[in-house]
Design a protein around this nucleic acid. Structure first.
Lengths: 254, 254
DNA sequence: CGACTTATTGATGCACTTCAAGCGACGTGG
DNA sequence: CCACGTCGCTTGAAGTGCATCAATAAGTCG
């Protein structure tokens, strides 16, 4: 598993052999978590950084009105809570969507790392900043587009991110989300999500069956939603290597 | 000015004398920038990290439709673009709202810092993570609340952040925003922002005159909007010192 | 197979948008 | 000093995207 973590980080930043040693010494716990389970809740003191190795999770908050707002979808290779450093307590929850394989990395390990291992630190920072760029785009998406483009944009983003970690093929990827999940992240009602998905289907842009989503014409869907991938920062430098990610496959197999 | 930067960072993390030296050696350029001017545009290769010393700025994108979506307001003490590290080119623009005093810190300085100065690095990370927490809350705000609560929430947040850097007194703070600025960040039309502000005024919650906003009953406005300050992470640890920030006043004076 | 959850569809209402026009403040030039 | 243009704020009227309520169909799992 350390191997997985090392490869993830090296996709951002060259690491020394000593860096490798430190990461190897982490020995994070591996866990299988069922679907619809919270990994950590708002108010909890964070003790581990969670790394998703397999499955889908989300970052969310519950509003005073009782409404759930999802702020991020987490896919294999994503850290859940690098923000552990500033938070004495979590200001949001993280819960699984599907069943997940999760690595728990103790918080203390990161204190040690940021104290003495600048390359690892910079790689972690990199992860956090990409997450932030995605978050910004979500804000743009919700604030600036209407329902059909908004959902189409999300579907494009998920395709790109899942392709980057080898979890999509033939423009098809697993889709364990309920329509209410989509509703809660797009700021829409479940009913309207349903109608919007129907519209995208009837336009021949997507097919959704057996919890699996297929995008028939990626470029068309991108054009429809106004999607550009620049904010994912996939194209340049080491990131490009991330397009096929053997360590993820390996981690899933083991 | 270095003094300003040092104090900002020390509000997050204890720094050694050597750290101080490094920061003092930076000698960032100070600039006065007019209102409605871009500091950096989408597509530009970032060469400096901009630190706002005085005035208001914003982070925004232009959608294919031509619509502007504002993703963040930047107030004195905020870094504009710590994300310089991963971006070969900016994926968004940063522009001033009012006239600003800005410190330009060369990108290279951060390479040196992250290479050899872990405490400074951690303090910078902290800044970035607070920014991200604010961004998450904006997403929640736009996705989950309707116009009147949404705008009220923004006004609460600005009060808290400006109080934290000593730029608000008597629950009053400078308000250089046009209604179209509010519209473009809240995902609303200018007309509806106007009506909503009128509603907040007629409820006796706020007064807005001479480009200055007063919140009459802060607790009432918080209750109205469902605002809780936890996501700003102001209350714990070193952050509490930030409530009165002499260095900002000093920087403005000089 | 029966119980429960999730997807789908219809009808109605509202929050917000869009279009359009008037108003006030401000600065500029004659 | 006033006339005028500009820009931001304000208000009205009409339209629409989406929410809400409600009921049925289609999975899904024990």
């Amino acid at each position: 598993m350390q191997d997985a973590l090392i490869r993830k980080l090296e996709s951002y930043e060259a690491l020394s052999k000593q860096d490798h040693k430190v990461l190897t010494a982490l020995v994070p716990k591996l866990r299988h978590v069922g679907p619809r389970v919270d990994l950590i809740s708002e108010g909890d003191p964070p003790e581990h950084v969670h790394l998703i190795l397999d499955g889908f999770a989300c970052r969310y908050k519950i509003l005073p009105s009782g409404q759930r707002q999802i702020m991020a979808f987490l896919v294999p290779g994503d850290f859940c809570d690098l923000n552990v450093f500033i938070l004495d307590e979590m200001d949001h929850c993280i819960g699984t969507i599907s069943a997940c394989q999760v690595a728990d990395i103790p918080r203390h390990a990161f204190d040690v790392i940021t104290e003495s291992h600048p390359h690892i630190t910079r790689a972690l920072w990199w992860c956090a900043l990409v997450d932030e760029a995605v978050l910004r785009e979500w804000l743009v998406n919700i604030g600036g587009r209407q329902a059909n483009q908004r959902i189409a944009h999300l579907l494009c983003e998920l395709l790109m991110r899942l392709q980057a970690v080898g979890c999509a093929s033939d423009n098809t990827y697993p889709f364990p989300f309920k329509q209410s999940d989509i509703a809660d992240c797009m700021g829409l009602s479940e009913v309207h999500v349903n109608r919007t998905l129907r519209e995208l289907r009837s336009l021949g842009l997507i097919t959704l069956k057996k919890r699996s989503l297929t995008i028939h014409d990626v470029e068309a869907l991108k054009a429809f939603s106004g999607f550009t991938a620049n904010y994912l920062h996939l194209k340049n430098g080491r990131w490009s290597e991330r397009r096929s990610v053997p360590w993820l496959v390996q981690a899933q197999g083991g």
